[in-house]
Design a protein around this nucleic acid. Structure first.
Length: 402
RNA sequence: GUGGCUAUAGUGUAAAGGUUAGCACAAUAGACUGUGGCUCUAUUCGCACGGGUUCGAAUCCCGUUAGCCACCCCA
């Protein structure tokens, strides 16, 4: 999965970046948002010996922006594209597709406000999923508007819905205080109809944001990407502005997002950098694995050939150890695994082991072979055996395998 | 963080208060001693943890931990 991804990222011009697993707590408080669930209850946090508030990173975007600013990358070249793969941590109750330590593969394009970037990021995401042979995913997309649009929408929603407060669920009542936007993606049916009724009459997008979004959609159309407009996607990280999207898969159950992302045009400046647009996404590795497993047996990359070295006695093991190193040091066109016994097993047991590994050839060395200066090469398919001079072992095996 | 369910060898499971805790696969060793796949034989490994109830607990109760499902949240 990693190597497939690397190929795609390279094609799109994204460079790998690795950031620390621990970060200062304030980084996420500032970027993700003080009132978000991730910050208020889902971070593993502790104090280090310098009494600093440290957390295990819950997501990848903020650390990358931090690194980008800290290394003054914006002064070398304002526009930079990164990808990352690594562990993230969130202190939640585990369930299918949700664990406390999980892995994300993600990308961030920092330094551009052009609609092409929104589209490229989504295309990158679908290219990755396609390369991993994931089928049946769905892209849903929405436009949250700029910072000003978001605040004005929050205000109106709060205003309109406070009157209906009694009809809302407990969660939505809380959301109304903390982050009114979140009421839009409430799953409770009765809230849903109420909220959506109220939301329909709200017009909050400024002209600029509206235009940007239309261009993004036009780009996606040109790229042949199928998406669904969903005006109720909000996302739980405060830094998102404008384009937000989610990729869901029906094979996932309750945690149905394979990946998600969007534009975050204020994060860089909020963190003390210049005013720069940016967009990115993250994919959940374990969730992809779940879907892949459900799609049927994974394409077995069992194209590797195995050569097993079986030895009897100390002298033979010494020789075998030498030979296996010689074999491994050579250049091989095909994928070849060279292995031997490290437990002093009987020849019978070594043969059984070789068979279990699916060995194509076994190199048998005992006292007889040592005295003759050759090894016995057994073809496990045909059961034919031939003596091969130690010096010719590499060449002979090569001839038979490649 | 809330609610519900679950916890037996490496894996999948059986034992509905009294069995040396059973079975299958896997693993290890062997079947005239230097040769694999099949078969056969033998062997190793287990009641998540801590309390209780009971003459007696894998089995009932409580707690802890972990997992699963839903909510929530999100990747």
């Amino acid at each position: 999965m990693e190597s497939i991804s690397q190929d795609i990222f390279q094609k799109f011009g994204y460079r790998e970046i690795r950031t620390p697993i621990i970060e200062e707590k304030s980084l996420f408080v500032k970027s993700i948002g003080e009132e978000t669930d991730i910050v208020t209850k889902e971070m593993f946090s502790f104090k280090d010996r310098g009494e600093r508030e440290i957390v295990l990173r819950p997501e990848g975007t903020a650390p990358i922006v931090r690194a980008y600013l800290e290394a003054n990358l914006h002064k070398t070249d304002t526009f930079q594209k990164f990808y990352y793969m690594g562990s993230m941590f969130r202190a939640e109750r585990p369930q299918a597709g949700r664990m406390r330590q999980f892995h994300q593969i993600g990308a961030e394009a920092i330094g551009s406000g052009l609609p092409e970037i929104d589209a490229e990021v989504i295309k990158l995401l679908t290219s990755l999923l396609d390369a991993m042979k994931i089928k049946g995913y769905k892209i849903r997309i929405n436009n949250l508007g700029c910072k000003e649009d978001k605040t004005s929408l929050s205000k109106t929603l709060r205003g309109v819905l406070t009157k209906e407060k009694n009809a809302l669920c407990d969660d939505c009542r809380k959301r109304l205080d903390i982050n009114p936007l979140r009421v839009l993606d409430c799953k409770n049916e009765s809230c849903r109809s109420l909220i959506r009724g109220a939301f329909k009459s709200v017009k909050f997008l400024c002209k600029k944001c509206d235009e940007h979004f239309n261009k993004v959609l036009a780009c996606l159309d040109r790229l042949g990407i199928k998406y669904e407009l969903d005006p109720y996607i909000v996302r739980g990280l405060d830094y998102y502005t404008q384009t937000v999207f989610e990729v869901t898969h029906p094979g996932l159950g309750s945690q149905d997002a394979l990946g998600a992302g969007g534009r975050y045009d204020n994060l860089i400046s909020d963190m003390g950098g210049p005013q720069l647009g940016a967009a990115g996404f993250a994919l959940g590795v374990e969730r992809i694995l779940i879907v892949a497993a459900k799609q049927g047996p994974t394409v077995d990359p069992h194209d590797e050939k195995v050569v097993y070295v079986a030895t009897m006695g100390d002298a033979a093991r010494k020789k075998g150890f030498e030979l296996i190193d010689l074999l491994r040091s050579d250049k091989w066109e095909k994928k070849v695994v060279f292995d031997m016994d490290y437990e002093n097993k009987s020849l019978k047991a070594q043969m059984r082991e070789a068979d279990k590994l699916g060995a194509k050839f076994v190199l048998i060395i005992g006292d007889d072979e040592i005295s003759k200066g050759e090894a016995m090469l057994r073809d496990m398919m045909t059961k034919e055996q031939q003596g091969v001079k130690f010096d010719d072992v590499v060449r002979t095996i090569k001839g038979k395998i490649e």
